[in-house]
Design a protein around this nucleic acid. Structure first.
Lengths: 200, 200, 200, 200
DNA sequence: GATGAATGAGATTTCATTCAT
DNA sequence: TATGAATGAAATCTCATTCAT
């Protein structure tokens, strides 16, 4: 056997790392962090426990990496620049992307929600989450303000709540959930409605 | 000395049982089922591990009882009779009650959501949950149909999604969440709107 | 309710004590000493754990009493006086009684055998047992010597071994064991045979 | 450094497994199944409790393996083929081997007897035991029939009873038991006797 | 006399982590 | 790099015994 060149080694390591992260995501998402043992993860990933510990310092670090990994994927191509404000088109594309990601990365959303609901598992997580969502809230508030909403902040909260609620219900019910319909209804609700007509 | 009378024993047991259930709910909700040890629960409830096992056969049974207990409280006074259909007033009262319960029984909602998202912890739970929510869905669909909605089922899904999303966000953010505002917005959205005006 | 007279109390206590001993015998015999919990015994005897401890100091004492009780029953009417030697008639009656006791007190034999085989459970027991069986051995040896046996001690050992073996097999196989036949064969073997004819 | 080769791992595991089985046999035999804790076994075998569970799924499985192991040893070289019947020579060799095994594998016999007497510990065991002894009974019955015995089945029962009784007494009394003498007497009883002379 | 709640020690079992090879 | 044996702490659960009433 010829010795592998450095970049080959690197590639192998990266692939194996990815494999571990995927497996860990799946197990953490379905059984929870405390409900998934390192042995289970290693076995399902097809490696030894010992090797896993050369990739990740410990179980908590593994969880952090799983989260970081998933977050990166989640916000890929999702460029909402806080300073510039958003328009109707940008919001539409944001919604489309978010619903798409929900389908692609269901597992990650599942883990995500479980950690949001149960923050004691990884205390820093909730803080990070709030920090990340605040800029979005600001943008939404500004957008709804420009649209002439009476209470733009509340509307922003509602926007987020629906995204979260649809996500949770989609995860809870699985394939039978009418995700597309909900998306259309959602878009209709936030983009087509003419708020100035309300109350007249 | 005379032994305690049966009703004395009963009272003692009932009170202690309640205490254990409360403690377990709190810990299961914040740390998750696997993240809460029986020792923790016993210590926090001020009793020995051994005694806990005279009240509940095992940890899983304790969880089931916690759930059953919470469910009972959740649906107390919430009489939606499937056969008769619902009107505006009944829906309003349902919403008011649900938002109220969210505030009163936040802990239970937290546990509830975590189990919905992570069904492997207690597999029967998801099934039970779906069975319980189906009648409500039917009622909502019928109501929205009578209101002249184009897609009443989707609207019903949206209704549930918002409740879930608001609940989750309220739990995730704690006291700072503008629950009352969201309730008003929610009521406005589903009860005040005149759908026949849409698109005109 | 009129207060019970002292002898009534005494009678009640004695009966309850008997009930506990019976229950303990049954459980110790079937599940073993370590396999039978005090709770099980109390529940099956229809009393509370606390009461049991007013009758017996602790679990080991209970076992001792069970053994003493059973032993008394076992050797009732079985008068083999070491000094006087035994004759054919006495031996026959001893065999008859022993086989009869095996049927009556199967449970006790079961416990007995289990303790003989596993002496660490109650260390004193083996010693007591050996002390009790030695006089019988002496009598048997003397009897077989008088019968002209070549090796009377070995014959005595065989005598005991068959009793033990039949007892064990009877317990192991239950009702289907042909105890009567074995008794006849046994009697024939030790009482009918004319040893002086052997080898001629 | 290179990892251990598979056969090295295998050898290590096999040896340690044997060590655990030996220790478990000794403790189960002397203190009984319920009387021997996993901690005791692990400590005596010189390993941690945790490691024991990588070798055996649980305590009951350990007991089963101990039994299977011992059974294999017990019946090694003991070929009694049911179809062909047995002759005097084969029976003699069977007796010799059995008495030999009693000496070699005293511990196993001890465990064996305790489980026969107390079947609730491992319910399947008694059934297995009966199934294994039935063929032997059949062979013995046929042999004694050919020898002209009046009641060959009873004689077969007696044969087994003596083996069991001698075994039990040997275990109960330890080194002082005259095993060899009993063997000679046993052989004399079943192989030298001329049954046709009886009753004349 | 009688109850059964209560305990603490210890039982069985699991698991994150380390280590020799 | 990779293995899986090995550990010790901690998890779930049991049980002999005590105690207030």
């Amino acid at each position: 056997m010829s010795p592998r060149r450095p970049e080959q080694w690197k590639k192998i390591r990266l692939e194996k790392r990815e494999k571990i992260l995927d497996t860990a995501l799946e197990l953490f998402a379905t059984h929870g962090y405390h409900g998934s043992s390192v042995s289970m993860i290693a076995r399902k990933a097809g490696i030894s426990k010992g090797l896993l510990y050369t990739y990740f310092d410990n179980k908590e670090h593994l969880l952090r990496e799983v989260l970081a990994n998933g977050m990166d994927e989640l916000i890929r191509d999702l460029h909402l620049i806080p300073d510039q404000g958003i328009n109707r088109e940008m919001l539409l594309s944001y919604i489309e992307l978010t619903f798409g990601r929900l389908k692609e990365s269901t597992r990650f959303y599942q883990l995500f929600f479980s950690l949001v609901v149960q923050p004691s598992v990884l205390p820093i997580f909730r803080q990070q989450f709030i920090e990340r969502i605040l800029p979005l809230m600001k943008l939404l508030e500004k957008y709804f303000e420009e649209q002439g909403e009476q209470d733009p902040l509340a509307k922003a909260y509602l926007f987020i709540a629906i995204l979260d609620g649809v996500g949770m219900d989609y995860i809870a019910t699985g394939g039978i959930y009418p995700l597309e319909k909900l998306k259309d209804l959602f878009i209709h609700l936030f983009l087509d409605e003419q708020p100035e007509k309300r109350g007249t």
